[in-house]
Design a protein around this nucleic acid. Structure first.
Lengths: 208, 208
DNA sequence: ATCTTAACGCGACACTCGTCGCAATAGTAG
DNA sequence: CTACTATTGCGACGAGTGTCGCGTTAAGAT
């Protein structure tokens, strides 16, 4: 059985294979930092890594595969959601982080989104990464409930999406001018909606 | 002075030029409807339009240019924001429209977003289109204020973004499973936040 | 009707992209 | 150390992409 090599199924993960992977992923990060997701090309990465084109194509298939593996390598870092003492503060801090990651040039997050549109592999990696992050952030809502900031048991995911979506929408899709107040405003709005019971999933239609 | 022809600066907008443009834009829509933004290629459009490749390259430069002009042509249709009698109903209806446009396969809106990541021209056209749409929707908020649903004069744009962003975020970026309740939930949350005064700018109070 | 020239058709060209077969290299087992 | 083979390097190829020069067509002006 001579199947093509893969990133996930390491049949011979020894010295050279690991070394090539490290070189290539370093090259991806370097190219990305230099010219953004526009300049990220298979040939450029291969050349910078000192590796032949065919090797990169065989192991990573396309640009999306490169980004997906780069995420997988970077996803091992342990990220922690903010803890400021209040739900509103936590969400504002989270949004601040998001805004910075989107405004930094070149932005790794934006590159990943761009790649997700023409690479199923990158799209899956992106979906997985965000699912993890939102799951981790659910603790913010739990803490708020414990502190008595929220009554009932709101749908944490919906609340988090409501708080963070405007930041992505304004900066990525609408390409609005950067607004230092945006993270705080979006967070405050989500907290108000949550206080009003907007995210309590039982079919309790609010009166009037 | 023999400058290259352009879509915007029509130096000779007569019969043939307009005919070619119509053929090409029809071809763009047809290709888009058949194979989505993945299958949209300059050569394919030229062939389907019965026009030479070089002509398409000269007038539209790249795929983003094609989409940008297609948007410009489609932006002339008179779109009207919903009017259901209540702010929450209006926003829910608006979100319903958005969700349908994103879930239809192939989605013109998604194709436009994808193109915006590697074409400045398409990105500008997209930004312009959305700015127009959001400006048109501000009347929803005005009507709500007149009806007395909202106190004060909230920032209409922020309110609209808060209501619609979750739909884009869930379906496009997070690629969540379609949820028929999403449009209504997002609309309800935004209305609750607005009722709480989340979008009233404290610095610009008092003035009409 | 005639002239001017913007816009298009045509074919050729250089270039990039992704794939393939084969030889060389280097992990890994014995 | 030797044998085996997964993995890489290498070069060539076919297809696709974007550009260019030149001749032709047709829109707009007189």
């Amino acid at each position: 059985m001579t199947e093509p090599p893969n990133v996930t199924a390491d049949r011979r993960p020894g010295g050279r294979t690991a070394r090539v992977r490290a070189q290539v992923l370093d090259a991806v990060r370097a190219e990305l930092a230099e010219s953004g997701h526009e300049g990220l090309t298979m040939e450029g990465v291969a050349t910078r890594a000192g590796v032949h084109r065919a090797t990169v194509y065989r192991r990573w298939r396309d640009v999306g595969g490169l980004l997906a593996d780069t995420i997988a390598a970077a996803g091992e870092i342990d990220w922690q959601p903010p803890d400021t003492g209040s739900l509103r503060g936590d969400l504002a801090a989270l949004n601040q982080e998001i805004q910075e990651s989107l405004l930094v040039r070149p932005s790794f997050a934006v590159a990943l989104m761009a790649a997700s549109f023409h690479s199923e592999q990158a799209a899956q990696a992106q979906t997985r990464l965000w699912a993890d992050r939102y799951a981790q952030c659910e603790v913010l809502v739990d803490r708020a409930v414990e502190r008595g900031e929220l009554t009932g048991q709101p749908d944490a995911r919906s609340l988090l999406v409501a708080a963070t979506a405007p930041v992505y929408h304004e900066l990525v899709l609408l390409r609005a001018d950067p607004d230092p107040d945006l993270p705080g405003r979006a967070a405050a709005a989500a907290v108000l909606a949550a206080a009003g019971g907007a995210f309590t999933d039982p079919h309790q239609q609010g009166a009037s």
